[in-house]
Amino acid sequence: MKLGVFTVLFSDKQFDDMLDYVSSKGLEAIELGTGGFPGDAHCKIDELLHDEAAIKQFKQKVADRNLIISALSCHGNPLHPQKSVAQPADELLNKTIRLASKLGIPVVNTFSGCPGDHENALYPNWPVSPWPHDFQEVLKWQWEEKLIPYWKDKNDLAEAHNVKIGLELHGGFSVHTPATMLRLREACGPAIGANLDPSHMWWQGIDPIEAIKILGRENAIHHFHAKDTIIDQQNMNRNGLTDMTDYAQMKDRSWYFRTVGFGHDGKTWADMISMLRLMDYDYVVSIEHEDGLMSIDEGFTKAVENLKPVMVKESVKEMWWA
């Protein structure tokens, strides 16, 4: 298993400087944004896609630092009811899949998207209650008319390019739990899996270790983010899980993101890493730092320090004791 980082953190650094900095921290992998919400500071997709010389140089710079690229990430909403939002996200996903194939990167990360509630809607509709029954009708329409047809096509595209798609289970999008992840995978194909981020499990009341079990048994974890969350029970009692308080108003929120080890202890993170290995995930743990209480450098550094002791680096070849 390798420790990496989602380099959107270092968007202010030039590509070479970012690589040097990450390498100096003893990491082995980077996850790069190609656009959408993560931006494209370190991976200009249109400059690389049709330029073999640029691709060769790009790959060499990464290899020279003894790094690998774990995933390309283009988080957006390709199912947004407004075409001006959905179409660029869809085009970016297609390009990112093709570039990942050219670079030999096995995973593309994104969101499932969230449609509206009818063809002429203006905004996404995220149903989270089974009653009144209107929400069930919305959910049925979204899955049958939008989600499944769209992701069936993307599954086929990804398979044709020998790439897997890691959907981040995130509130506000149609795939946000292990159950919705497995429903989409069953309907669309095995190239569709999870970019599992425990931080989004905790605030939904889901134990990430159990989520790893549920998804891991179906071989449905394609990538893993390392980010923590803290629950403020007093605010939770007031606002509930689906808290709409702005992220910047941390004192008033039910939950907020923390760097690794500052929401849950080292034993919890060790148990997660161990469960990943038990479920045959032997790829990259990619740090994502969105802690509003720490600077980029401090939050990232503490995440590295807290994860290194619990990472499982060597797989067991045989059980010598039995």
Rank of each mutant, 00 (worst) to 15 (best):
V8N: 10
V8F: 06
L9D: 01
K13I: 03
F15C: 06
D20K: 13
K25L: 11
L27F: 01
E28F: 05
E28P: 07
I30F: 06
E31H: 12
G39W: 03
A41K: 10
C43P: 02
I45P: 01
D46Q: 08
D51N: 14
A53Q: 15
A53C: 12
K59C: 09
R65Y: 09
L67F: 07
I69Q: 05
A71F: 05
H75W: 04
N77R: 10
N77A: 06
L79P: 03
T96H: 02
I97V: 12
I97E: 00
A100I: 03
G113E: 03
G113C: 05
G116Y: 04
G116P: 05
G116S: 07
D117H: 12
P124E: 00
V138I: 15
V138D: 01
W141L: 07
L147F: 06
K154I: 06
D156C: 08
L157D: 07
A158K: 00
N162Y: 11
N162A: 15
G171M: 09
G171N: 10
S174K: 04
H176G: 10
P178M: 02
P178Q: 02
M181I: 04
M181A: 14
A194P: 00
H200S: 09
M201P: 01
W203L: 09
G205R: 13
G205T: 12
E210D: 14
A211F: 00
K213T: 15
I214D: 03
N219T: 07
H222M: 04
H223D: 15
H225R: 08
D228Q: 11
D232S: 05
N235S: 05
N237Q: 14
R238I: 15
N239H: 14
A248K: 12
D252A: 11
Y256K: 05
F257S: 01
D265P: 06
D265E: 14
D265F: 10
G266C: 07
K267V: 09
A270Q: 11
D271E: 14
L276W: 00
L278I: 09
G292P: 15
S295H: 05
I296G: 13
D297M: 10
G299K: 11
N306S: 10
E314D: 14
E314T: 15
E314N: 13
S315N: 12
V316Y: 06
K317P: 08
K317G: 15
K317M: 12
